[in-house]
Each structure stands twice: as structure tokens, then as C-alpha cells.
């Protein structure tokens, strides 16, 4: 590994340049992570200095598209953390079933694997017809991929395993068709999903939901931004609506923790407390 080093000042300038040129504000992302992401992108594109990187970013929009892919960590899988899905089915779905229309928001959905997992679960619970799923991500390339509903066949084995562990009811192969080394998610699962671009840093409340899933996104934010985004979720939830975050993420260290009650401490499922006042 090369010994590239950007200073804190460099970092601030790079983030400022990105915001000015492309409109993405990363200034409140976890500093340790974002610095490592930037070092990694420099390694991968053979850039030696912060100056070279800034020059490239300022003059090459195509490079930025690639750079954004490296910056936002896109790793995801279907039925990631199977126990989470089990608890969701057992503790959240019965409440969701009481609504005539069930609105769900996946914030930071990456390439859609989590969203399709949700659709499968809803279908098996007989709720998919009534569900309206909004799936958003900051990265337009992710949204493009997610819309296609294609995932690589090579991962299907481990997804099948996850699906079974989560308590899936049928054969996982019912939900996709294999074509040229890819698994194409069945169109039935896709019809109630709306994918679109939404930036949690700068965009606003756009609907009211009974369930918001924002898993493994908050870890890339600093504490301030976590507070702001959780407030956004609070304001986007119906009274008694549910919020699910990643298994290593926590509301405990945020200012808004008292606004939620814990449904599953292990799998990080929370419910908005009834009080109707908005935060701030």
C-alpha cells in the first residue's frame, strides 16, 4: 500500500470542492471513514497528492461519478442479518397489517437488495398488494442498478441461505429467474416499489411512513448529522411508526433517543412515541 497522506485541511478543501461542483455535502460524514475512502480512491486511480485529486475532481465529471462509487460504501446483500427480518416479521408486520395502505421508506437502499428482501417478506405475509415502497439513495448509479432488479447469480447461494435463516416460507428460487449469470428479480415483487434519488443531508420529508429502514448508512455520518437525519425520520413517521437501523448502529448516542421506544434492542428496531410534536 502506498503511503499517501492528505491533511485535515486538504480534506476540508476536497469536500468543499465536491459540494461546490457537484452539490453533494459530505462535510458531516465520519472523518475517519471519509479520509480512508479518499485515500482508497487515490490509490485506485494512482493519484499521489491532494492537489492532483482536486484537479481531477474539478475538471472531470466522469471521474467524479466513479469517485462517488468509492466514497459511498455500497456493499449490501439480500436478507442481511436474517434475525432482523425474523423480528420484523414477528414484531412489526402485525402492526403494519392494520393499515389500509402501508408506506415504507428504505433510505440508503444501495442497489436494492434490501428492498427486494422486504418485498418478499411482505408478499409472504400477504401485505405486498397494500404496500407502497419508496426506496432512495444518494447515488444515482445505485438507483439505476436497483431499478433493473438484477443481482449477481454468484451471490444467490448465500442469499438463499439468509432467506432460509430469516424464516422464509417458500423456495427462494421462486423469486428470481436466472439469465446469463444474473438473477433477475420477478416483476411481481417490483411493481410496488418506487426508486428515486434522495440525499439525507439536503433533502426533506416527502411523505409519511409506517416503517423506515435506514440500515448501515448512519455509521458513515458524524454525530451531528446522525441527529439531523434521525429527526428527519421522526418527522417522516406516522405516530407509532417504526424505524429500523443497522445492527451496530445506535440511537443511544443521539439527542432524539427519548422520542423512540425500543422494540428490539438486538436488531435495532424502534417505534416513534406517540407525541405529535415535531422536533424543533
Amino acid at each position: 500500500m502506498a503511503e499517501r497522506h492528505i491533511t485535515n485541511d486538504d480534506l476540508v478543501e476536497i469536500l468543499h470542492l465536491i459540494n461546490r461542483t457537484y452539490g453533494y455535502d459530505f462535510s458531516d460524514y465520519s472523518r475517519a471513514s471519509i479520509k480512508r475512502r479518499i485515500h482508497r480512491s487515490m490509490d485506485m486511480s494512482n493519484l499521489e497528492t491532494a492537489y492532483e485529486l482536486k484537479f481531477r475532481l474539478a475538471n472531470d465529471a466522469e471521474y467524479f461519478r466513479w469517485f462517488l462509487e468509492v466514497l459511498t460504501v455500497n456493499v449490501t446483500e439480500m436478507f442481511r442479518d436474517p434475525e432482523f427480518y425474523t423480528e420484523l416479521r414477528e414484531k412489526v408486520f402485525p402492526a403494519l397489517a392494520t393499515y389500509p395502505i402501508i408506506k415504507i421508506w428504505h433510505a440508503g437502499c444501495a442497489t436494492g437488495e434490501e428492498v427486494y428482501s422486504m418485498a418478499i417478506m411482505l408478499k409472504e405475509a400477504g401485505l405486498l398488494e397494500r404496500a407502497k415502497i419508496y426506496a432512495t439513495d444518494l447515488n444515482p448509479l445505485n438507483i439505476e442498478k436497483a431499478k433493473k432488479g438484477i443481482t449477481s447469480l454468484q451471490h444467490v447461494k448465500s442469499y438463499t441461505h439468509n432467506y432460509i435463516r430469516s424464516g422464509g416460507k417458500t423456495d427462494f428460487s421462486d423469486y428470481y429467474s436466472a439469465q446469463y449469470g444474473a438473477a433477475i428479480i420477478s416483476s411481481e415483487l417490483r411493481k410496488n416499489i418506487l426508486f428515486s434519488q434522495h440525499n439525507l443531508v439536503t433533502d426533506q420529508v416527502f411523505n409519511e411512513f409506517q416503517l423506515i429502514c435506514c440500515r448501515n448508512v448512519l455509521i458513515y455520518f458524524n454525530k451531528d448529522l446522525q441527529n439531523r437525519v434521525i429527526s428527519l425520520f421522526y418527522d417522516s413517521l406516522s405516530p407509532m411508526g417504526y424505524l429500523a437501523i443497522g445492527t451496530k448502529e445506535s440511537l443511544l448516542f443521539t439527542e432524539v433517543r427519548d422520542r423512540f421506544e425500543v422494540i428490539s434492542a438486538e436488531n435495532k428496531i424502534f417505534r416513534r412515541k406517540k407525541s405529535s410534536t415535531s422536533i424543533k
Binding site: A32, V73, V75
Partner: peptide, 13 residues
Amino acid sequence: QIEADRTFSLDYS
């Protein structure tokens, strides 16, 4: 990871 404000941060990259 550790942030300057002496909190841990986790990273799944």
C-alpha cells in the same frame, strides 16, 4: 475507527 471527539466509529468497507 476512532474519531477526533473520542468516539468509536464503525466502518463496513
